[in-house]
């Protein structure tokens, strides 16, 4: 039988640890025992594949889910999903969610005293194309306060959830905006030890996807785990 090829472990420092005490909720929720490394089996190199229809053709546009248009700065967020070898991750589901332009989520637990927008839910999804490309239309989310420490504010961000080809490649992350002064003080952003890795969470302003009289463009490329070249690489 052909040996199974697993997925490469992330380079040191490029992923957060579970415990990062400046992010207070990690203290009671991070496991204390070390993770147990397991052999590669079919159960890790397979994973859910969704039909393209799961993302309806309009689900990528968060500004067209209601009668009117949401308030705020209209933006296009686009990019490519590739693996660590630069190969496009094709036809994979991307889910996003975010606060509205005032920094408020449409969620029962969000107590922030900022207005809801009747024309904005803040949820979208799409599937990458054959070249790994995706695109969302939305509004720029507002910063919002949280209870982690005194005067704590989350930088503007959009939550991203991706599956990739396997159980091993599942990724949930957040996209930030260039030049946001709150990034410097954000423990969630700083939970990633390696500075270069951290910077890859910041989108870049993109003239190419900026449309005249319509919307600014931001580019956010996402890299999922690459495949081991040989079964020996574990």
């Amino acid at each position: 039988m052909k040996p199974l090829l697993g997925y490469r472990k992330p380079a040191p420092g490029t992923q957060p640890s579970y415990l990062y005490p400046p992010y207070v909720s990690s203290i009671k929720r991070a496991p204390k025992q070390p993770l147990i490394s397991i052999p590669v089996t079919l159960s890790e190199i397979t994973g859910p594949t969704f039909l393209k229809e799961i993302a309806s053709p309009t689900a990528f546009d968060l500004t067209r889910q209601h009668k009117g248009e949401p308030l705020g700065e209209r933006i296009a967020v686009s990019g490519r999903v590739v693996d660590e070898d630069g190969r496009p991750v094709q036809n994979t589901l991307i889910e996003i969610w975010q606060a509205n332009a005032a920094g408020r989520y449409l969620h029962k637990n969000d107590q922030h005293n900022a207005p809801l927008d009747p024309n904005f839910t803040g949820e979208g999804r799409t599937s990458t194309d054959d070249d790994g490309r995706y695109r969302f239309i939305t509004v720029r989310p507002g910063a919002y306060p949280w209870k982690n420490h005194y005067n704590a504010w989350r930088p503007q961000h959009i939550h991203f959830s991706l599956f990739g080809p396997a159980f091993a490649t599942r990724l949930v992350t957040q996209m930030y905006f260039p030049g946001d002064p709150l990034l410097e003080f954000d423990p969630i952003f700083h939970s990633v030890p390696d500075e270069a890795a951290r910077r890859r969470l910041i989108s870049s302003f993109d003239w190419l996807s900026t449309q005249p009289d319509l919307s600014l463009g931001f580019r956010f490329d996402i890299v999922l785990r690459g495949r081991n070249a040989t079964p020996m690489e574990r």
């Binding site: 992923q15 660590e84 637990n109 939550h159 959830s161 992350t173 890795a197």
Partner: peptide, 14 residues
């Protein structure tokens, strides 16, 4: 290798 894997971030409360 173009870049290592994008870092994970929490799903948050919402």
């Amino acid at each position: 290798m173009p870049a290592p894997c994008t870092p994970s971030q929490t799903v948050g409360p919402f």
